[in-house]
Structures are given as structure tokens and as C-alpha cells.
Amino acid sequence: MAIALSVTGLRVRYGPIEALHGVDLDFPSGAVTALVGRNGSGRSTLLNTLAGLVRPSAGRVVWNGTDITAWPADRRAREGLTLIPERGGVFAGLAVADNLRLFADGADVEPALTAFPILAERMSQRAGTLSGGEQQMLAVSRALLTPARLLLLDELSQGLAPRIAARLYEVVTTLATADRTVILVEQHTGEALERAEVVYALSRGTVTFRGDPTEYRTHPDTAHRS
């Protein structure tokens, strides 16, 4: 399986605290990879480092053969790396319609409305007044309306009803194509394991498991499980 993104010897520090301890990971092209672990394990730090929001103290990030370690976040975004953060992927003060227009940048917004019909009923409503599930649907719409080549999703299903989480994952899974790679960060692993092809578990800034979902479910070390 071809590798879209790889990190080698990645270390991240917040002052005197090291959050990632020399992490080595490969993310396959056109697949869904799940990053799982408890709060404080380093999952979100890793995702923010991949997005360029956090600068590593050591190590390399290579995307499609190009070293992007020194690239700022805006350059990564322009090249097709899209981060959808936990509870913060929408413009809360703008109407749903305005959010979609900004995401689409002149393109048709219909793919988002087809995937999430409820948004068509909320077009004039401010995004900040939507339910948690509807806000996540709107946030995921960004990936449907932009030419993202690498999609990073942080806690997609956190606090959502199972049926809403399942629908979000159903849509996200379709985004993993030959030219688009998806990385999911989750604490609660149910849907993530159903959809992922590769699973990595982190604990206290180190990788404690790497393999496929079946191997993860039967792994004897339960310290990293939610």
C-alpha cells in the first residue's frame, strides 16, 4: 500500500513537557487511518502538528515525497491538507448558507446538502445555534466542498448520538479515495474501528499499537483502549 504521509522521529514540546516522544508513523494513501487513545495520549497534538499548527522540536513530516516539516499551516491548507477540529470547524456567527458558500469558494454546495439533507432546512440559521450533530455535519461539509487531499478529523463523534455518529462516519469513509487520505482521531473507538483500515494507538506520547482493527480488538494490552 502506497504511503501518503509519514512522520519520523517526531517530538513535540510544550515548554519543559514533551508531548510526543520520537513518533514514527506511516499513513497509507486512499485509506482511513484511526489514531486512538485516551485524553492526554498525544493524539490531538499529533494531528495539530500534521496541520502545521504546532511546530515539532525534532523529526520530519513527509507528504507525498515532499518534506513539509517547515511549511506553515496556511501553505499546507492551500496544498489540500484540511483539518476539521473538535467542536470548532464552523463559523459560528454566520448562517449555514454562508458557511457552505465559504467552504465551496464558488463551487456548488449541493454535495453537502445531498449528504446531510437537514442542512437544507437550516440554511438561514446561524451555525452556532445548530445542535452538536448538525454542527459536525456542517464542518464535515468542508471536506465535501473542497479539493482536500489529506483530511484530518479530531473527535468526529464526541458527544453525539450513535445514529448521527454513524452517518458522519458513513460520509467520511466515502472521502477516502485513490487521491484522498483520511486520518481520524478518536477516544471512543466503536465507529472508528468499523471504518478504518489501519489503527495506531498512542499513550503518553508514544505508539503502543499499530495494525488493523481486528488485531486491535484482540490485542492483550488494554491500556490504550477507551
Score class of each variant (00 low, 15 high):
17 I>L: 10
71 W>M: 13
135 Q>D: 03
91 F>G: 03
19 A>Y: 11
46 L>E: 01
226 S>D: 11
132 G>M: 08
70 A>D: 00
206 T>M: 01
1 M>F: 07
209 F>V: 12
155 E>A: 05
9 G>A: 09
72 P>Q: 03
43 R>H: 14
3 I>P: 00
219 H>I: 01
176 A>H: 10
171 V>N: 09
220 P>S: 07
217 R>V: 08
66 T>Q: 14
25 L>E: 02
2 A>W: 04
196 A>E: 13
128 G>A: 11
112 A>I: 13
109 V>I: 15
21 H>W: 13
126 R>T: 09
154 D>W: 07
156 L>V: 14
135 Q>V: 12
15 G>D: 00
133 G>L: 10
188 H>C: 06
121 E>A: 15
89 G>N: 10
95 A>R: 14
69 T>A: 02
19 A>S: 08
217 R>T: 11
142 R>M: 06
144 L>F: 02
86 E>N: 12
210 R>N: 07
180 R>I: 13
87 R>C: 00
146 T>Y: 05
107 A>Q: 07
160 L>H: 01
63 W>R: 15
199 V>N: 01
226 S>A: 13
5 L>Y: 07
175 L>S: 01
11 R>S: 14
171 V>L: 03
31 A>K: 15
121 E>M: 11
208 T>S: 13
95 A>L: 03
48 N>H: 15
84 I>T: 14
159 G>F: 10
112 A>H: 03
78 R>G: 01
200 Y>H: 15
20 L>E: 12
38 R>L: 13
86 E>S: 13
140 V>N: 00
30 G>D: 00
29 S>G: 12
73 A>G: 02
194 E>R: 15
17 I>N: 02
126 R>H: 06
78 R>P: 02
211 G>P: 05
